[in-house]
Design a protein around this nucleic acid. Structure first.
Lengths: 120, 120, 120, 120
DNA sequence: GTGGTCTAGACCACG
DNA sequence: GTGGTCTAGACCACA
């Protein structure tokens, strides 16, 4: 699954989808020209109404990140990806956020790392 | 700093504060009887209006997690903490979320772990 | 009625609404701070589903032309209006388009002008 | 030029061409038997691909408004034209639409009429 | 099959 | 009351 949605979050599903796809496209993980799953397909996979996914795609399109053509699906547009330094900065930020959460749960750094390995 | 706020997030600051304190209290990291920083102190530390922090405290109080008594400040209530299994489950969930973000940034598990160590 | 929708047009209603409001705001006919009709009210007036009007408003908001606050309605944002020269240019363009349509219907300029007066 | 196309419009060019020719034929401005410009000629005049104009002609032909015969070009069919009352109704509709646009631009009826004269 | 639009109605949060 | 979101389903145009 290319994207995941947490139904318990206060962040609306269409926003979660948009944010995750934005990250992947800007990081170059989804390269220019790659075809995204169809609206109906992704909606079915996530258990959402097609309209919800359509809204995410529509906003990505108006942001210039993807190109949609009726009858031909949706592809990632040709845009410069984030430089490696910026990707590294974002990874650091995510790491800090994870460590902060772990600390709030009373875990040490080693336990936090172990949780990563066990989940892999 | 006991708590951090991301001003760029769409999640309102009072929600971020409430969530983080809730986690720490339920996990037992903030033990019963521990005194929280004053509203004005925490607001000053975070660069927020006192009203914002007050709202977080108010919601935590109505949830029974903290007790505010005039003249004695705000302390953590005497409530059962989450069992270890539940804490472990939450840590796993946070780990998975972090790994997913790292993957969206094009990072491997090893790179994700390295980012934890370098940030520590 | 502040805006009209032609259901027979191939231009979708949400686009018609957005375009008309955009013109009025940029021309300064709807001044900064003016309150727009509520989504439900305008939808009822136009015989549309509230979602349709909501989509127009959402796009106007993301374009920075209006400000919506839940529970408090929608107002025109404080933006520079088009200079008089540009408004005049747009009026000329509309006039030419009307004359072209009239000519296609076999009408003279005088008949086109007479139609304006009789409709007034 | 018999027909004009607005490249900035969301209405596809072939639709704009079809609509304008339809109006002129139904109004009798283009009388039965009149020869239309060739597809290539009109495409060149409008700066469009011949395929685009061809599509407009094809749709007009299937609607019975024009007749294409190889070697003899394209001519307007022998069809009853709109009665005068209907032409008048369409002119009124166009006038109202123009006045509405002018009003959205902050113009009075007199200014709208003046714009017609200055453009003529 | 694809995406685009619209409807009718639901529930939520805010004020 | 306000807007925000989502659903379930419809019809359309395009390929």
């Amino acid at each position: 699954m290319i994207v995941t949605v947490d139904p318990g979050s206060t962040v609306p599903p269409y926003d979660q989808i948009r944010e995750q796809l934005t990250t992947m496209i800007q990081a170059g993980v989804l390269a220019a020209g790659v075809r995204l799953p169809s609206i109906r397909q992704l909606a079915a996979d996530l258990g959402l109404a097609p309209n919800t996914v359509a809204r995410s795609y529509r906003e990505l399109e108006s942001a210039g990140l993807i190109i949609t053509r009726v009858g031909r699906g949706t592809t990632v547009s040709r845009l410069p990806t984030l430089p490696a330094a910026e990707r590294q900065r974002l990874l650091r930020a995510a790491a800090e956020s994870y460590l902060a959460t772990a600390a709030r749960l009373g875990s040490t750094v080693d336990e936090a790392i172990a949780a990563l390995r066990s989940g892999a």
